[in-house]
Design a protein around this nucleic acid. Structure first.
Lengths: 325, 325
DNA sequence: TTGTAGGCGTTATCAC
DNA sequence: GTGATAACGCCTACAA
C-alpha cells in the first residue's frame, strides 16, 4: 500500500501539501494540486484510515450490540442500521450478546479500544451501562437504559391497545395475551395497552408469559388451549409467538380466523409467508434503525441530541389471522 | 482514556517496560511487573487498538460481505461467523451489498483502508475479486470466486440428489424443481443433482427458475399449479420458496403431504414453525460459517491454507411436508 | 532487567 | 502557497 510519503515523493512536494489536497483544506496552487492528484491516481493511493483515526480520534466506526441477529426483529433492524451508517460514511461492527452481561461488557471494551465513535445498544442491563463510565456515546434501542441515555422505541402501549381493540372489534370475546418477559419494558407496555382496553370493556381475558424462547413456547401454548378451549382471540407479544399459536391451533383443528383470531407483533417480513398470513401490529422497524443511527451520529458530531426520547408509531397490518369486517 | 505513558509515569518506569508486561514479552522483574499491573488497574488502562494496528499492521478486524443480512440463510451464517470471529479475538464488520458491484467494491475499499486483516465474501462477481488486486486475504463462502481463492460450500449436488431421491422414495411421481438463478453455482449444482436422479429413474419432471426474490415467486408458483395440476412433489431451491409453495398449495386446497410433497433447502430455523413444518435438505450453516472463519484466520496468521476448497455434507431433515414411510 | 529513541501514516501548527 | 516537524499511542531494536 502506497503511503502519503510515496505520493509526496512522486509529486515532488511535501506530505503536508498532499494532505492538504486530500482533505481539501489549506491553500494549494491549482497546478500542484493537479500534480498531486495525478500521483494519487497512478499510485492508486488511499489514505490509511487507522493513521487518521489515531491522530483525529474519530474512527467512523459504530457498534451494534444486540442479543442475537438471528431474531428476525433484530435482523431487520440491523439491516436498517447498517444501511444508514454506511450512507453517513460509518462502518458497523456487529456484536451478539445473547443477553449475557459479560459479553456486553466485553464488546463495550472492544469498541472502546477500537476507538469506536458510538454504539447502538439493545440490552436489559440498565444499571451497568450508564453514560459516564462508557466513554463513548450510546443510543438505546427498543429497551431503555437510563434516563440520560437517548432512547428510541415504538409506541408499544399504543400497540397493545390496537391489538386488543382489533380483536374485540372483529368479534372475539374471550381473549388471551401471551406477553413477553416482565423485565422487558416493551413487553410491559404492550401488556398495559392490552389490559387497559380489556378492563375498560369488561372482557374476559387471561395473561400468560412467554420467555421469548421459541422452544419453550410450544408447551405453554398447548397448555393454554387445553385449559381454556373457549378462547377465541390471541394477542401474541411477537410474531414468532403468533406463528406458534397458529401452528398449534391448526394442529388442534381450530379454524383460523373463524374460531380463533390471532394478532402478532413486530411486523417481521416472514409473517406474510404463513397460511393464513399473520395479522400483526407492525413496528416501523426500518425507521427505528435509521433514526437510531441518526440520533447517534448527532450525538457524536454535534455532541448533543435535541430529544432524549423518540417514540415512533406502530401500525396494524391486517392479514388473514383476523376476520374481514 | 489513559495512555501507556500515564501508566509508565504512575508506575515509575518507562513505557517500554509497560509495553513488555502488556504483551508478556521481554524480561521484566517480577516486582516491577506487579507495580506496573497495579498502575494499569488503578488507571483502568486499556491499550489503544488503533495505535497497535498502526504499528503492527494487523487489526484483528474481519469483513463480512454478503448480499443481505435479511435473507435467513445469511442471517444464520452471520451469527456463526461473528461468534467464531469473536472467539478468536477478531471483530466483525457487516456489509450488505444487495449484490450490487459498486457496493461490493466500495466495501472492499473501506475494509482495506481500515486495514482489515481479511474478508469473508458472498458474491457473484467472479471476475472482479481476484486475489492480487485485493491486497487482503479473502475466503469465498457458498459462491466460488476464483480457483485460487479459498472457498467453502455445502455439497449442493448431493443435496439435489437427496431431495429428488426422497421425493421418489416417498411416492411422488410427477416432480417439479423450482431452481435458483442460473448464474448461481450453488443453484446449478442442486439442479444437476436433482436432474441426475430423475433422468436415471425416468421420472416425469418440470424445471422452473426462481429469481430468489420472494415477491416474484408467488406468480410463478400459482402458474405452475395452474398448468400442471398433476404434480405431486416439489423440490424448492430454498426454504423460503418451499414455504411459498406450501402456502399456495394450501390456499388451493391441496393437502400437504398427502397430495403434494414439498422439500425445501437450507434448513433455516424458521422452517419448523410452519404447519405443516417444512421438510428440507439442511446445510450445516453454523459449521459453514465457523470453518470459513477458521480458513480465513489460517490464511491471515499462517499465510496459507491447507485446502483451497472445502465442501461440507448436507443432511435431510424430515418434517411434515413429506410422508412418513 | 530496564530505558531511549525511532517509526507506523496521518494531520496540523508553525515558519518561510 | 509550501515545507519542516511535532504530535497521536504503541512497539521494538538497540543501548546501557
Amino acid at each position: 500500500m502506497a503511503t502519503i510519503r510515496d505520493v509526496a515523493k512522486l509529486a515532488g512536494v511535501s506530505v503536508a501539501t498532499v494532505s492538504r489536497v486530500l482533505n481539501n483544506n489549506g491553500n494549494v496552487h491549482k497546478s500542484t494540486k493537479e500534480v498531486v492528484q495525478a500521483a494519487i491516481t497512478t499510485l492508486n493511493y488511499r489514505p490509511n484510515e487507522i493513521a487518521r483515526t489515531l491522530y483525529k480520534k474519530n474512527s467512523r466506526l459504530l457498534g451494534l450490540i444486540i442479543p442475537d441477529i438471528t431474531n428476525p426483529f433484530f435482523t431487520e433492524l440491523a439491516r436498517a442500521i447498517e444501511d444508514t451508517a454506511h450512507r453517513y460514511g460509518y462502518t458497523m461492527v456487529l456484536c451478539n450478546t445473547d443477553e449475557i452481561l459479560e459479553k456486553e461488557q466485553h464488546y463495550m471494551e472492544v469498541l472502546k479500544q477500537r476507538q469506536a465513535d458510538g454504539c447502538l445498544m439493545i440490552t436489559n442491563e440498565k444499571a451497568t451501562f450508564l453514560d459516564e463510565e462508557l466513554g463513548i456515546p450510546i443510543v438505546a434501542l427498543d429497551r431503555p437504559i437510563h434516563s440520560h441515555i437517548p432512547f428510541i422505541q415504538a409506541d408499544h402501549y399504543q400497540g397493545g391497545k390496537i391489538a386488543a381493540q382489533t380483536l374485540l372489534q372483529k368479534g372475539s370475546t374471550q381473549l388471551v395475551h401471551i406477553r413477553g418477559p416482565k423485565y422487558l419494558d416493551s413487553a410491559e407496555a404492550r401488556y398495559q395497552g392490552f389490559l387497559d382496553v380489556v378492563e375498560k370493556e369488561k372482557i374476559s381475558y387471561h395473561i400468560f408469559e412467554s420467555s421469548f424462547q421459541p422452544r419453550n413456547d410450544e408447551f405453554l401454548i398447548n397448555n393454554i388451549f387445553e385449559r381454556f378451549p373457549e378462547i377465541d382471540g390471541v394477542f401474541a407479544a411477537n410474531d414468532v409467538i403468533a406463528v406458534s399459536v397458529l401452528k398449534t391451533a391448526l394442529h388442534r383443528g381450530i379454524s383460523v380466523p373463524e374460531d380463533l383470531q390471532i394478532i402478532g407483533y413486530d411486523g417481521i417480513l416472514f409473517g406474510q409467508l404463513f397460511y393464513p398470513s399473520i395479522t400483526t401490529v407492525a413496528q416501523p422497524i426500518y425507521q427505528l434503525g435509521k433514526q437510531a443511527v441518526q440520533m447517534l451520529i448527532n450525538l457524536i458530531e454535534k455532541k448533543e441530541t435535541e430529544q432524549k426520547i423518540c417514540r415512533l408509531p406502530v401500525q396494524l397490518v391486517e392479514r388473514d389471522t383476523t376476520r374481514k369486517e
